[in-house]
Computed example of a mutant assay.
Amino acid sequence: MSAPLYQLKADFFKTLGHPVRIRVLELLSQREHAVAEMLPEVGIEAAHLSQQLAVLRRANLVATRKEGSTVYYRLTSPQVAELLTVARTILSGVLAGQAELLQDLRATNPTLTTSPPGPS
């Protein structure tokens, strides 16, 4: 018996649920990259980046090609880039709504400050 579609979707989103993986997919949305090109952009050690790339490969979200000793990564589908764009749009709307709510709260209660209280 195969897993229900909602379980497969949940597993898919779990794969996306790591900031490094999202950053890698954002970079690959622009163009293919060699591992060495991605390292300074993601700010982690090479071994950790390799682990995250392996997760994305297993999920079939990225593919590789080798040129000499250099391995290049690319998205397997442009729809991955579209998904990231949709996520950005959703988050922008959520954050805009939160900013409006905060502005309304400040208008009704001027004692609210922009910074949280410090340690006691």
Rank of each mutant, 00 (worst) to 15 (best):
E100F: 14
I22Q: 12
A81Y: 02
L83H: 02
V62S: 01
Q98E: 15
P110Y: 00
V35K: 14
R88N: 09
A36W: 08
Q30D: 11
T108C: 11
V62Q: 01
T76Y: 01
L49Q: 06
V20M: 08
M1C: 14
A10L: 13
V94H: 09
A10K: 14
R65E: 05
L83E: 03
T113G: 09
L105C: 09
L84M: 00
S69G: 10
V35D: 10
Q51D: 13
H33R: 14
T108P: 05
H18Q: 09
H48T: 12
S120C: 15
T108H: 11
Y73G: 00
E32L: 12
A81Q: 02
Q79G: 06
P119G: 10
A10E: 13
R21V: 03
Q79C: 05
L102K: 03
V71H: 00
L5E: 13
D11H: 04
H18V: 07
P4R: 07
R88F: 02
Q98K: 14
L53E: 02
V20L: 09
P19V: 02
V35M: 08
E45P: 05
P4I: 05
L101T: 07
Y73W: 03
A81W: 00
A34Y: 09
P78D: 04
A81G: 07
L75E: 00
L112N: 03
T76M: 04
Y73C: 01
A81L: 03
K9V: 15
G17M: 07
A107G: 10
V71L: 01
A96L: 14
A46R: 15
L83W: 03
V80K: 00
S29T: 09
L75C: 02
D104M: 15
T113M: 10
G17F: 07
D104A: 12
L28D: 04
A99V: 10
P78E: 06
L49Y: 02
I44Y: 04
A99T: 14
G43F: 05
H48S: 13
G118Q: 13
A3R: 15
A59Q: 02
A107S: 10
E45T: 12
D11F: 06
E100T: 13
S29A: 14
S50N: 11
V55Q: 04
T89P: 10
Q7I: 12
A107V: 02
E41C: 10
G43V: 05
R106P: 00
V42P: 04
L27D: 09
P40Q: 05
L56C: 05
A10N: 14
S2G: 08
E100I: 11
A36S: 15
Q7S: 14
L16A: 04
S50G: 12
